[in-house]
């Protein structure tokens, strides 16, 4: 017993060391989102490409869909764009939020790089972005059939993050929908 007590500091030290060592490899930029599990906030905005059309939350339809925050000033959005085109082609509706951008530049971007979005809400003063807790671009939200945000992903959506982060949740949503129908 007495011998065990002598080893206690060493054991504590190893425990603390392991804890802190693990901390070295955590991504400090990965922040928990306050909005996961919350409904999509209300909004009323014009779109980038559709002239006078005013879009609101009611225009976001789909069993599940993506909300993608993008801007022409955002270099990473350019890298993300081909992946979004692929995802849209696979049948997942994507709604864009054009975040604090210039209208001409944004519509040029869409005609030049092709448009993966059902529409892009023109959030010029960032109000919708603010209500979504957006602090940069690109950011992507996965929303389920009940309009609840299931995932907030800050950074470029690519093949890997799509598989690891989005696909499992989409499977969950599909299962929940099947269960609620049954």
């Amino acid at each position: 017993m007495k011998r065990f007590v002598l080893f206690l500091p060493l054991i504590l030290f190893i425990g603390l060391g392991a804890f802190l060592y693990k901390g070295l490899f955590l991504n400090p930029k990965a922040m928990p989102s306050a909005l996961e599990g919350q409904p999509v906030p209300q909004f009323k905005l014009l779109t980038v490409t559709q002239g006078d059309r005013v879009v609101t939350k009611a225009d976001l339809v789909g069993d599940y869909y993506l909300l993608n925050v993008w801007a022409t000033w955002c270099a990473a959005c350019k890298a993300e764009h081909p992946y979004l085109l692929d995802i849209a082609r696979s049948g997942v509706p994507i709604y864009g939020i054009n975040y604090k951008d210039d209208l001409d530049a944004a519509s040029q971007w869409l005609s030049h790089y092709k448009d993966p979005y059902q529409f892009s809400a023109f959030d010029v003063n960032g109000q919708l972005g603010l209500n979504l807790g957006v602090y940069g671009a690109p950011e992507t939200f996965l929303v389920d059939h009940q309009g609840i945000i299931r995932l907030r992903y800050a950074g470029v959506v690519d093949t890997r993050s799509w598989k690891v982060k989005f696909m499992p949740l989409i499977e969950d949503i599909k299962r929940e929908m099947a269960e609620s129908k049954a």
């Binding site: 922040m31 928990p32 989102s33 306050a34 909005l35 979504l132 807790g133 602090y135």
Partner: peptide, 8 residues
């Protein structure tokens, strides 16, 4: 602020 950006 906390509602949107969390305790962070």
């Amino acid at each position: 602020m906390v509602m949107r950006y969390g305790d962070f």
